[in-house]
Design a protein around this nucleic acid. Structure first.
Lengths: 209, 209
DNA sequence: TCCTTTCTACCTGTAATCAGGTATTTTTTC
DNA sequence: GAAAAAATACCTGATTACAGGTAGAAAGGA
């Protein structure tokens, strides 16, 4: 009997998962915790095989909780659940000992498949999660390839975004003000702008700052 | 028999609502549409009493769909569903003929109460939604009271945020460049900054632009 | 109708930005 | 070790931003 712990503060999600699993005679939802604290307490006396873990909980970040659970149990399989498909969260979860990732708009068969996969010591990523990681990688790469900022340019850009003036940046980085000017002009050329305000606007819109 | 249409692309949510309502003998979920298109098609031949409407659908904004549904039926009660508690969405829904608003982390009794309330021709807002509207109002009021920008100052601020220079703004607003300078200096004084970059940073952080 | 607020415009002077480059040194890559 | 890239710094000149004000007109409120 596969024992499943749900950690999610949305009753809809918990009820939905129970409904999806009710015909799986080999699987049983043993608890549904609404908070990280509740879950951790439950885990002091219980050992589920699978944890379905919402990434955004009221009292703790899901990634943080994943890490804590992993120190408590090396063997429990942790599948992340979230509404939004973000590459950073996916990789963050896997780096903290997570075994899989599902979006809340999953279908029943996908949930079942995820559980079977992680029980076989494999990592499960939904197709959407896979696509998102790839897309994000390509997108960031494209953005970085579009502008190809050097190390110094990135640094100057960030300091400009923080509101520093050219002279202030030259003082901070121990450079000649004229050097900072040159970097600024190089940034203008790369971003095809003619003012610091527009430079910051485009950079912000491109998620570079 | 109260006929309920669910419009939501998350199977978990649909299953969860069905589970919550299964003991309500006077209520029946007659359909669960995953997209706006599917819902609108369903509504050509069916007349539910209640619609539980997810605000973010794959093929249409929920507020837009609310408006469309309202042109099809003046009497159906529409309760918005969303994960995030945003005052703008809440008021937007009500302005488009919605009858209520629920967060997806609702409990079963809250869903039941919402349905009963809107059937009595009343507006239902969850406590969280009510609190959010009040908080947002207070927050914006506080921000506006803090800075007390005049009409022209707000205009200048927005144009600066769009990347326009002083001379460009003077041309656009048919003002003397010196007038724009004065407005800019007044903004600096109110925000206690000494550069346009910092002005925009603070204004952005305060959600004024 | 008067007072207050907002808007408009001006002044001198300094600092920073912007443009359009050139050129040398250092670091990185092959 | 050589070539390429990055970093550094410089030049003249023009434009814009910033500072610290003053002052009158128009609009709004009491």
């Amino acid at each position: 009997m596969v024992k499943i712990l749900i950690i999610d503060d949305h009753p809809l999600v918990c009820d939905g998962i129970k409904t999806m699993l009710k015909d799986e005679s080999s699987m049983k939802v043993v608890n549904a915790s609404k908070t990280a604290t509740e879950a951790l307490f439950f885990l002091t006396t219980n050992q589920p095989d699978i944890i379905l873990l919402d990434i955004s909980l009221p009292d703790m970040n899901g990634l943080e909780l994943c890490e804590k659970i992993r120190t408590i149990s090396k063997t429990v399989k942790i599948i992340g659940l979230t509404s939004t498909n973000e590459a950073g969260i996916i990789t963050g979860l896997l780096q903290r000992g997570g075994n899989g990732y599902l979006l809340k708009n999953m279908e029943r068969n996908e949930l079942i498949e995820a559980i079977h996969t992680v029980l076989k010591e494999k990592v499960f990523l939904s197709r959407a999660a896979n696509d998102k990681i790839l897309e994000q990688f390509q997108s960031r790469t494209a953005a970085e390839e579009t502008y190809l900022l050097t190390r110094r340019e990135k640094e100057i850009l960030q300091l400009l975004a923080n509101g520093l003036t050219g002279p202030q940046i030259s003082e901070k980085l121990f450079l000649s003000p004229l050097t900072v000017e040159t970097h600024r002009k190089n940034l203008f050329k790369k971003f095809k702008v003619h003012s610091i305000q527009l430079l910051l606007k485009v950079a912000r819109d491109s998620s570079l700052i």
